[in-house]
């Protein structure tokens, strides 16, 4: 069973490297996430070198079906996010 890294642990790791309070570091991480969200929305892409790229792209409206009632419904157009990993990260996660 693999473990899960959480936001709180990331905050702790940053906190150990800086001479600041944990509360402040936590707020900075929240601020970072909100900047990232806005960037994906505004620029449709967020590029993190050595890590990867978050891309937003639009999906058209389509007809769907409720599998339980087999009722036909229209799914609204929406935006989705995909992550593409960088070459560097790909090589790091697949050591040869």
């Amino acid at each position: 069973m693999s473990r899960t890294l959480t936001k709180a642990e990331i905050v702790d790791t940053i906190y150990e490297q800086v001479d600041r309070s944990r509360g402040e570091v936590k707020n900075l991480v929240e601020s970072l996430l909100s900047i990232m969200k806005s960037a994906v929305k505004r620029d449709h892409a967020l590029l993190v070198s050595g890590f990867g790229k978050f891309e937003a792209y639009p999906k058209k409206a389509r007809k769907g079906r409720n599998p339980q009632t087999s009722e036909t419904i229209t799914l609204d157009p929406r935006k989705v996010v995909v992550f593409r990993l960088s070459k560097k990260f790909r090589n790091e996660i697949n050591p040869q």
Partner: peptide
């Protein structure tokens, strides 16, 4: 450190959850 922690976890095969 934020992105490095995520990378390190995934290189170990761990899941990462950022609420």
């Amino acid at each position: 450190t934020f992105f490095q922690s995520i990378k390190d976890a995934m290189i170990q095969g761990d899941r990462v959850e950022i609420r």
